[in-house]
Write a protein that binds this DNA or RNA. Structure first.
Lengths: 360, 360
DNA sequence: AGGCCATGAGGGAACGTTATCGCAGCTTGA
DNA sequence: TCAAGCTGCGATAACGTTCCCTCATGGCCT
């Protein structure tokens, strides 16, 4: 085992086929001219040597690696793993591989990851940036001519394509649904990690409209929540906004407990992503609140357990796999010369009505 | 945007610093000799040019890519995404990146994936092989001196390290628990995709012992089930083995329905992985069977929803993240020259008793 | 004062490809 | 019969690194 013989190179092939490396390369790449006879000789040599071209060497000269860099927060989350699956499926169709990195929503890790991927000469980047307001590193990548596609968190500052769902509309629909069921105190669980967004009340100020692409997905979802209230003419009690420090389940559970312990506790709860959904639901479970009688619940992301619990959860579904597939597709199109201004691809969400919402 | 200027090379750095590329390379790599003055000049040049070494070119000469290839069935499954997270975490610590591929449990895809990764010159491979009996391609990789670490499905035929859990013991413990609660008709949900394993009764034959490393994880788990019965002197009714064609949730649900529709239906159900757990639980839910009164249930994998449903599910937990981390660690150790025969790392499982099992 | 050695730095080959260019030798047509 | 074109192939220069070797310089010891 572990025979130390180096694998055959194209020179070995050429020697065996009694041609020059140029000729061998030509039949391999199927370009230029060569006779049928030499083609066969080269192919035979390849066969008998078990020759496989060295992609690294090839990349040196072609200046492409046929590899896409993916930067996500945490591959073990159902959202990201679903998206990444979509990315790999689409990428593979076009002969691209995936180099994967996690950031845990940390901008510094993200910068490191991006640098690493660029150093490895990936042909393009697909990234869910940790902070749409801190994207200088992504702008830099773009300005060097590398293509970037964002997902989940579009940021117009990057000047890159992005694929997301219409977060505002999705959440607005859900909250409107809740409001139409008579709920007036609707709690929302959201992670506003970014300091400048923590003061979410200011989101209300600038028209509540037109600031897409400047805020993170969770802030956009909160915005949808606010707009639904505004549309219905219902005042929002700031204490109903359960803000968690970071993207973690325990934080969401904790915030939910606080929300539900308040004297004027909400009659309905809505969450802004899969972590929040899980944490919030856990907390509700612990408290032994009967759902939907004593509390209505709308989750974010159609996680597979949401149909398993009783009552089954009404949720906002994102087309997870498709988000990834479309992002990869767009990136590859760009690599193939697709020009034009950055495109914002907004995929539709589905509001799946199940059993966790009741009229108050 | 998209300035077409090529990024600076080490030659540019050398020119600006007024040294030779050799010298520039030396300070970059911090080897050989150079004066403090030139060190500073080179570093300054790097700084002002924003030079970043091209990993591809470096790989050409160093013959390493600092990249590990990962071959799994489906990154979107909670098991694999958890393992891959463990892999990336550990790999990153040592400066390795991850090239990710999915096989959907298809041996042909697996071969393609392995070839691709080898062509891309990954330093080593971490793979959950689709079929422990069809591993010629992995043997070949090993025999060319590339290191491979298997996970979830060890196969002694590969001659590679492997990290798994003790599937037999894990399942034996669970089933013994069920038996001790008086259950005599315990259904098991398992995917025996591989034809030669479909005739599982033959697993009983060869001693029921000593064939670790020759069978897939699910077969090993079935084996644990059989051994527990043998230990307790309880005969196994072959009709209690719910075999699904492939690794899919719907197949598991279907098999569960069949099992539960039988006149002499099982009083307990045990599953062999997360897909089976989900599918089986779905079917049980649909049938509105009261758990654990009318049916006891032991799931495989501590999925986060298993504590959310009522009753909470008693499960066999695998240390998912650690499986990945240990696999990566072992591979990196090998790359660092760790010699010795292939090691089989068996991580402990935990049997988490919750509320889904009752005495009959 | 002369020889030696340590120090610092440059030259250049190599890694395995791709692809441009030029050049024989042959065919073709006027 | 000879120019022109075409066909098939080889030489060779990249691509951006690393690192081995060689060499000049200067200081120190005897």
């Amino acid at each position: 085992m572990a025979s130390s013989a180096q694998p055959p190179t194209i020179h070995d092939v050429a020697r065996l086929a009694k041609v020059s490396t140029s000729t061998a390369s030509r039949v391999l790449g199927n370009y230029g001219r060569f006779s049928e006879a030499t083609r066969k000789r080269v192919l035979d040599a390849i066969e008998t040597l078990g020759y496989r071209p060295n992609s690294v060497a090839r990349s040196m000269v072609t200046r492409r690696t046929d590899t896409l860099g993916v930067v996500c927060a945490d591959i073990s989350s159902p959202f990201f793993s679903g998206v990444v699956r979509g990315i790999t499926d689409e990428a593979r169709k076009s002969g691209y591989s995936i180099l994967l990195t996690n950031t845990d929503e940390d901008v510094r890790s993200e910068r490191e990851a991006v640098n690493l991927l660029i150093d490895k000469q990936v042909d393009g980047l697909i990234v869910a940036t940790a902070d749409v307001g801190d994207v200088e590193h992504l702008r830099a990548v773009r300005s060097h001519g590398k293509h970037v596609v964002l997902f989940d968190r579009p940021s117009s500052a990057v000047g890159a394509d992005a694929v997301t769902v219409d977060d505002v509309a999705a959440m607005r629909e859900a909250v409107t649904y809740l409001l139409s069921h008579g709920h007036r105190r609707i709690g929302i669980l959201t992670e506003l990690r970014i300091e400048r967004e923590a003061d979410w009340a200011t989101l209300l100020r600038p028209g509540l409209d037109r600031l897409r692409g400047e805020i993170n997905a969770s802030a956009a979802r909160l915005l949808g929540y606010l707009r639904a209230h505004r549309d219905a003419g219902v005042e929002v009690d700031p204490s109903l906004v359960g803000r968690t420090g970071g993207y973690d389940v325990e934080g969401a559970a904790e915030a939910t407990r606080r929300l539900l312990a308040s004297p004027a506790r909400p009659t309905a709860l809505v969450t802004t992503d899969n972590m929040m959904t899980l944490g919030a639901y856990q907390a509700v479970r612990e408290l032994d609140i009967e759902m939907p009688r004593d509390l209505s619940f709308v989750g974010f992301d159609n996680l597979d357990w949401t149909t398993l619990v009783r009552p089954a959860l009404t949720v906002i579904e994102q087309p997870v796999h498709e988000i990834g597939a479309r992002a990869a597709r767009k990136l590859i199109d760009r690599l193939n010369g697709d020009e034009g201004p950055p495109e914002l691809i907004e995929l539709p969400t589905s509001f799946l009505v199940r059993e966790s919402v009741a009229a108050v």
